[in-house]
Computed example of a mutant assay.
Amino acid sequence: MGFGPSISAPTITGTQVVYPARLVAAWAVLTVAGLVLERVIRRLQYWIVRVTGTHTFGWYSFLHSDHQDGLRETETYTVAELKDRLDWERTWWRRSTRRGVRAVVIAPVVEELTFRGGPYLLAVTLGGAHLPLLVAGSVLWAFLHTRNPRRYRRGTLPVFVSGLLSLYLWLVGLWWLAILVHAGNNLVATAVDVGKEWWRRWQHSFSPGEEYTVTVDDQCPQPDRDGLYRASTPADETLHVADVEPGETTRVRVATTVGFHGYAYPITESEQETD
């Protein structure tokens, strides 16, 4: 029995009574279940690696990388790399918008029509087997998420669980609503991802592109393990700068922040005149 107000929604074969409150509740439960399941699986992988001391399936490198927070995989930063990072920071909103359009508009339509619409049409052609074919398509769709770039990679089972509502909607003929649910999932994930990145970028004293006159520290071992030199602004804030000499005073431009540290590079006279 449904709860809350109902609406009559068009389906592939006619119309059906839909309870929006029930759908929202199901979406929330499955989303939370997928996230919890992913966390449980991750913890189980940690435990297996620690107990056995082996990482036959490559779990060790995958888990280890989750705790890395740097600009690149090598140990040192050059001026050219920090300049590239500044260009990357300046186009962040543009890239985020493009990625959001792909995730919220294009991906739900293409993925639903391919991985659930295709099996549905095959089932109609065969005259049955809707559930097995839709489940097979959903499993394939979930598995492909394990091939995403590492930052967006998720396990097959958690993704499959979070997509059960879309699978059900295809079974009852509400294909357009399945696309909307998929788009809603991606919208929430994109909003959280952008929100976290925005918070990381703007919670610090330094913003990419800002310029400071700094004095390089000559009292501690230089450079550090990243090939950068510690320098202080007139307000006694610390920046990590590439290609400078201890004790000198120079004008620098912030490229990015990592954790609570600002990373910068020196500005040449020609660059200052151009700016």
Rank of each mutant, 00 (worst) to 15 (best):
A235V: 04
T213G: 02
D224S: 09
Q203R: 13
Y229L: 14
V258A: 04
H240C: 09
T250S: 07
F260R: 08
S205C: 06
D226R: 08
A242P: 03
V258W: 00
W199A: 15
Q219W: 14
F260G: 08
Y263A: 07
E211C: 08
C220M: 15
Q219T: 15
G195Y: 02
F260I: 15
A231P: 00
V244K: 04
D224E: 10
P246N: 14
T249P: 01
V244H: 03
A242C: 06
Q219F: 13
H261L: 08
V194M: 02
S205K: 04
D224N: 15
S232F: 12
L239K: 01
L228M: 12
D236V: 09
G262M: 05
E210Y: 03
F260N: 12
E197H: 02
P208T: 04
Y212K: 14
Y212T: 13
P223Y: 09
T257A: 03
G259K: 00
E197V: 01
Q222K: 12
R201G: 02
D243V: 04
R225K: 08
D236G: 03
Y212E: 13
F260L: 14
D217C: 14
Y212H: 15
H261Y: 03
T249L: 10
E211Q: 12
D236C: 05
Y229N: 06
Y263H: 07
G209A: 09
V216L: 13
E211K: 06
T257S: 04
L239G: 01
V194A: 00
E211F: 02
V241Y: 01
D226N: 13
R230P: 00
D217F: 13
A235Y: 04
L228K: 03
V244L: 06
K196E: 12
F260D: 14
V214G: 00
G262V: 07
S205G: 05
Y263V: 07
W202K: 10
T213D: 08
P221D: 14
G227I: 06
A235D: 11
P223M: 14
E211R: 08
E245T: 15
L239W: 01
E210K: 05
A242Y: 00
Q222H: 13
G195R: 03
E248L: 06
E245M: 15
D236Y: 06
Q203P: 00
E248R: 09
R200Y: 12
D236E: 12
V254A: 04
Q203A: 11
E245C: 12
S207D: 11
A255I: 01
R201K: 08
E245A: 15
R201S: 05
T250M: 09
S205T: 11
V214A: 04
D193S: 00
V214T: 02
H240N: 11
K196V: 12
D243E: 13
R251P: 00
T238G: 01
